[in-house]
Nucleic acid binder design. Structure first.
Length: 685
DNA sequence: CGGCTGTAACTTTTT
DNA sequence: GTTACAGCCG
């Protein structure tokens, strides 16, 4: 009796752990055990916390951790949630399967790929690689020789959109790429050849990872995968596409233990064929589904929510909800109209420093923008004023030419059938261009697994002038091949690159410095295939992750695209370039859906802020699309911030000339949000 | 055939 | 600032 009682007590206390601090709705989402569950969770309503608690609850009540699958948008999100779950239920939480759809697909296909004809040693093509391969087959086919043929990046975009939305090519072209309509036949031919080429060379692109996972689930072997998991949880469900929706359904069945969390108001990935349709149709696909809505916001002050709600109200979705804060107070957001970009940059720097003086560290502040290059002007000003920052999104280190150069060499060792890697590696040699590279690739028969040995054992026939550099490449690959660790392999290849870069890049030294950092990252990995897959599927998200990361005890400002800021929050948020043409981006204006997505994007940006929100728009800005005498153009404030939404902000105007005065007075007018008082509050409870 | 130079046209967001 | 290509030279 006593024993039973104490057992009961233990489990009750544990229960209390993961229920602590949850509201009724969140608690319902955590405890529901009747099959399919859709959680409609507005911005800042404790979605992550709920999902974490649910994982913890599953494990605490007896589900084996490795039988739980947690699909998130980034690996960072998965790691964070599992870390928090671990603190609730202990180390076993670390055995939960977590990551992006792509990362999990990679893992499953390495193990079960054979069932769908995938070589377990497959290489992964990132977007740029896919473009290269697309170009290779285009040239082989002799297609697209006319002047107006879509570029390789466009081809990849069309391809990806077609397979992910599962819509016929002709229709995709008609709807999303009308200027390529005429080329439909040639494009189709290129896509066919592209698919065949990938198969021949054991290569999968991002889309293939999903497609083969879905295909795998349709084979007898799929049952093994299905039986592997008792519970599947999906975060950011509004940003999944048709294929991902199918995978989930195939994994769980119509009455399985599936828990999807999402917010249709934050759907911002239509450009890669994601659609909140999966969310809207959840109750159809899973007829017994329970739907729980979370709309109490714990993140932002009411004035910030008022602004965000007003923007969203211009076009509400089917799961319309109005966020409300649990408490009152807070200052109204500021809308700064700046005369030009320089004024904006100056104003944002002033504001950031002002907030820091008020006690908000730089890391508690973020600057958000629509496109990677929108922060260019600001970055200069930050550097001028010695304000440290780290930028997320936008250009990635892996996309830098020299990093790809080295990785291609490593890829050749890992998957000797990787034609794209061979081609790029060979083109590194002075005197070798596409034609010679192509001949060598044919010579060593890159379609067979013996290509590397053939290349090392017998030098391919090349023009005499190319023989010495070719010998160097062979020596480098042979040496690296013999190295035991990934770090030393990269080290050897880096030495080779040093020789090549001298007469290839004018800034060879800086580029070699990057490779040193890459080597340091590689040294932390003990498995080459995993190292390469990690880099392709979960690349370092910020400029700081791989390069020049400030010291841990340093303080830095966060700069991020709005897309990369998803799921994050900061006490102080600046949103820059909120002018028409930027948000909404004029590229998106061709369709009404595009416009709605831009609106949601702004909504996501605004709802990242906890205490302070400053939105700014330059009225005169550098317009990259104009190459004439003056690349500047005059814009106006984003249409989303006109009318009622605009009324939720305090207006300020900033001139470049006397910007500081205006800025100071405007900021002085804003009562200080005091984070110290807030932080101490916890002590008084 | 490949590398170099000049010219012209294009630049969203991410796995 | 970038990329893609035509034209020219080795």
């Amino acid at each position: 009796m006593i024993i039973a009682c104490s057992l009961r007590r233990v489990s009750f206390e544990r229960m209390f752990d993961w229920l602590q601090g949850l509201n009724d709705r969140q608690r319902e989402a955590v405890e529901y055990d009747g099959g399919p569950l859709l959680v409609v969770a507005g911005a800042g309503t404790g979605k992550t916390r709920t999902l974490t608690a649910r994982v913890a609850r599953l494990i605490a009540t007896g589900t084996a951790a490795d039988r739980v699958l947690l699909l998130t948008f980034s690996r960072r999100a998965a790691t964070e949630m599992l870390g928090r779950a671990r603190s609730l239920v202990g180390p076993s939480a670390g055995r939960v399967w977590g990551g992006t759809f792509h990362a999990v697909a990679n893992r499953l296909l390495r193990e079960h790929g054979a069932a769908v004809g995938v070589d377990p040693c497959f290489g992964i093509l990132d977007q740029a690689d896919a473009g290269e391969l697309m170009d290779l087959v285009r040239v082989d086919l002799g297609a697209g020789l006319e002047r107006r043929f879509p570029r390789k990046d466009t081809l990849v975009a069309i391809y990806s959109r077609t397979v992910n939305s599962q819509v016929r090519l002709a229709q995709v072209l008609e709807e999303s790429f009308p200027w390529c309509r005429e080329d439909s036949d040639e494009i189709a031919a290129i896509f066919r050849a592209y698919g065949e080429r990938k198969r021949e060379h054991a290569l999968l692109d991002y889309d293939d990872l999903l497609l083969y996972w879905r295909a795998l689930l349709g084979t007898p072997r799929g049952d093994v995968v299905r039986r592997q998991f008792d519970h599947v949880l999906v975060d950011e469900y509004q940003d999944t596409n048709e294929v991902q929706g199918d995978i989930l359904f195939s994994l769980c069945g119509p009455a399985g233990n599936v828990c999807a969390v999402g917010d249709d108001a934050q759907a911002i990935y239509a450009f890669r064929a994601a659609s909140p349709k999966n969310m809207y149709e959840f109750p159809v696909r899973y007829p017994s589904a329970r739907v729980v809505t979370l709309d109490q916001n714990y993140r932002s002050t009411q004035p910030i929510l008022d602004a965000a709600n007003a923007v969203l109200a211009q076009s509400p979705g089917p799961f319309a909800k109005r966020l409300w804060a649990g408490h009152t107070g807070g200052t109204r957001p500021v809308l700064a109209t700046c005369s030009d970009e320089a004024a904006q940059a100056g104003y944002v720097c002033d504001s950031v420093l002002w907030h820091r003086d008020q006690g908000v560290a730089l890391r508690e502040q973020a600057v958000l923008f629509r496109a990677g290059h929108h922060s260019d002007g600001l970055e200069l000003e930050l550097a001028r004023r010695n304000i440290p920052f780290v930028k997320y999104g936008g250009l990635r280190y892996l996309e830098a030419a020299h990093v790809k150069d080295l990785l291609c060499l490593l890829r050749v060792l890992d998957n000797p059938r990787d034609e794209v890697a061979w081609h790029r590696a060979l083109c590194l040699l002075p005197g070798v261009g596409p034609a010679t590279a192509r001949r060598v690739v044919d010579d060593i028969d890159v379609r067979s697994g013996e290509a590397l040995h053939r290349f090392l054992d017998a030098p391919p026939r090349v023009p005499t002038a190319v023989e010495p550099p070719l010998a160097e490449l062979r020596a480098a690959l042979a040496d690296a091949h013999g190295q035991a660790s990934v770090g030393t392999q990269v080290g050897r290849l880096r030495t080779f690159c040093a020789g090549v870069f001298e007469h290839r890049y004018p800034d060879a030294d800086a580029r070699l410095g990057d490779l040193e950092r890459l080597e340091a990252v590689a040294a932390r990995s003990d498995d080459r295939a995993r190292f390469l897959a990690d880099l392709a599927l979960d690349p370092p998200a910020s400029t700081g992750d791989l390069a020049g990361a400030p010291h841990l005890d340093d303080d830095w400002l966060v700069l991020s695209t709005i897309h990369s800021a998803k799921g994050c929050e900061w006490p102080v948020v600046h949103v820059i370039h909120a002018s028409d043409g930027n948000i909404p981006a004029d590229m998106a204006l061709s369709t009404p859906d595009g416009l709605d997505e831009e609106r949601r994007l702004l909504y996501v940006a605004l709802t990242r802020a906890r205490h302070s929100l400053v939105v700014s728009a330059p009225l005169r800005y550098y317009h990259r699309r104009r190459g004439f005498d003056d690349a500047h153009s005059y814009g106006q404030l984003s249409r989303f911030l006109m009318g009622e939404a605009g009324a939720a902000f305090d207006p300020v105007s900033v001139d470049s000339g006397d910007g500081e005065l205006t800025t100071d007075s405007a900021l002085a007018a804003e009562p200080a949000p005091d984070p110290v008082v807030g932080a101490l509050e916890a002590l008084w409870q």
